[in-house]
Amino acid sequence: MTRYLVAFQAIVARELLRFTSQRGRFLSALVRPLVWLLIFAAGFRAALGISIIPPYLTYITYEVYILPGLCAMILLFNGMQSSLSLVYDREMGSMRLLLTAPLPRWWLLLSKLCAGVFVGVLQVYAFLLLAALFGVDLPPAGYLLILPALIIAGFMLGALGLLISSLVQQLENFATVMNFVIFPVFFLSSALYPLWRMRESSEFLYYVCAVNPFTYAVELIRFSAYSAFSSMSLLIVVITGILFFGFSVIAYTPARAGQRGRGPSQT
């Protein structure tokens, strides 16, 4: 077991070191949600009235409403960023070093995933600190209570990134994937508007939002932040996360390379 933990620790430490050395990545991870919070929310505050909906017990400002959604957005972007770095690692060859280690592939991928979740959660807390400085905050207990929700949601979104990285064969294709994954996933969810609002505009889009696992990641974080618990959100996020991770492990098994007709250098 020690061997497993030693490798786990090294993979997490390497990812953290990489992240801290990429100041641009950290900065954009913070600026992106802040732009939404301070500019987008200011503009839409008047247009989008929020009624009292669970878990909120009173009327809230639009900024307060979108705060959990922006936390989930950070995790989503972080998952995609980790996925991008996996594709880059594969093209640059360093993925081979990881995959030829004498440890089960699922463990190596899980370690990589956990490393990404760790980095993502750090970013969320940095963002929440800045948001609090701008006067948008959570109940004090919420900062602690969202931690398990962030980890679980981060796992699901990181696993989605892992799955995408196993399917995308070249770095150049990644921008397309980002556009086709991040934007629909984010906009077709309850991150920016409650689902009842969406239902007023389009019944069809409402159902799309209702089957989007990202919606449940947002709601899991939102409910936890207000000391409430959404068992359905937890269930959906956990099951989806396990499925994404399971498929990623299958997609990363050695046998797949030959079946897909890839050359040896692209493994």
Partner: peptide, 23 residues
């Protein structure tokens, strides 16, 4: 054939990472 090194890390850090992957 293709180098598998982390260019921005020291030689020692690269080696420690690999050593850890082998327990």
């Amino acid at each position: 054939q293709q180098p598998t090194l982390d260019l921005d890390m020291t030689v020692q850090r690269n080696m420690m990472y690999f050593a850890a992957l082998h327990g």
